[in-house]
């Protein structure tokens, strides 16, 4: 199986189960990022077009896993200006039409 590659600051790694995803920006640590991507990818896949539910699940899972107050935004187009904790920001594109912002504050 040919996994699409996910780029993080120049390095490449395989991302499981998604059609195509690409990091735009992240300052998370390696393990957290892997976990977050997995959560996002699985929940988006599970809820298909119900982005609100997917975002809720992502938020709750992340709260459970890495201490609370995570925020997740999933959508096809939006603008944002957020304040977030360092090493806890993930901004990625998924499936070719989704932008996902996940951060903690």
């Amino acid at each position: 199986m040919n996994y699409p590659l996910v780029r993080v600051r120049g390095e490449q790694r395989a991302c499981y189960g998604s059609d195509l995803s690409a990091y735009k920006h992240t300052d998370m640590k390696e393990e957290m990022r892997a976990e977050a991507v997995e959560v996002i990818v699985s929940s988006v896949e599970k809820f298909q077009n119900k982005y609100d539910l997917a975002a809720k699940v992502v938020k709750e899972t992340m709260d459970k896993k890495f201490a609370p107050n995570w925020h997740c935004i999933i959508g096809q187009g939006f603008g944002f200006e957020v304040m977030c904790e360092r090493n806890s920001l993930l901004y990625m594109f998924l499936n070719g039409n989704l932008a996902i912002l996940l951060f903690k504050f």
């Binding site: 939006f78 603008g79 200006e81 957020v82 977030c84 360092r86 920001l89 901004y91 932008a99």
Partner: peptide, 9 residues
């Protein structure tokens, strides 16, 4: 420590 980030997509 926090940072502010803004973007439009």
């Amino acid at each position: 420590p926090s940072l502010t980030i803004n973007c439009q997509v």
